[in-house]
């Protein structure tokens, strides 16, 4: 079973993606999509040797909702700065320590922070477990770090072991 389906989550995700892309849940699409999903997940096991474990799937939904709301808020905040006649945001770099080590959790955090217009994930240092972030409108550095830790990192630590 593990040899045929090394990454069940990835395969399931790919199958759903395929069906959405085809706009149909017909038997032919399910079979073809299933073959593709299994083939890709077997190929991916060369890059991702260890199985992906997600411990609390419902926390994932919470993470998506929290991140989505923050992205909307950040969009409106950055837009108000940019439509100002002389945009002069107080930007700054932040070097943030991360407790997170799991590569998938780090990737998700990077996607969230990059998709938020107010912040950009620049450079992750694996040796020291820190990440360099550029913040568009930085008011209070300590507060910003605490917000990211509380809102995203805590959830990601619960989801990924």
């Amino acid at each position: 079973m593990r040899r045929l389906l090394p990454h069940p989550i990835l395969a399931g995700f790919l199958l759903v993606l395929w069906l959405v892309l085809q706009q149909s849940a017909g038997l032919g699409h399910i079979i073809f999509g299933g073959v593709i999903a299994i083939a890709v997940s077997i190929a991916a096991s060369a890059i991702i040797p260890e199985p992906i474990v997600i411990r609390r799937p419902w926390k994932f939904v919470q993470l998506i909702v929290v991140a989505g709301l923050d992205i909307i808020r950040s969009n409106l905040a950055v837009m108000s700065v940019l439509f100002h006649p002389r945009p002069n945001p107080t930007a700054g770099f932040i070097e943030m320590d991360l407790t997170l080590k799991n590569p998938f959790a780090l990737a998700i955090l990077a996607v969230i922070l990059t998709a938020t217009p107010g912040s950009a994930w620049l450079e992750y240092d694996r040796a020291r477990s820190t990440v360099l972030i550029h913040v568009f409108d930085l008011v209070d550095e300590a507060e910003w770090v605490a917000t990211v830790k509380k809102r995203y990192e805590a959830l990601l630590l619960e989801i990924f072991p």
Binding site: I72, V78, L82, A91, A115, P117, H134
Partner: peptide, 21 residues
């Protein structure tokens, strides 16, 4: 933002608005 902001690090934030919301 991409056109008007001063430094490169500021400018990378602009296009993110197009790709997110």
């Amino acid at each position: 933002g991409l056109v008007r902001l001063k430094s490169f690090y500021l400018r990378i934030h602009g296009p993110t608005m197009g790709t997110s919301m």
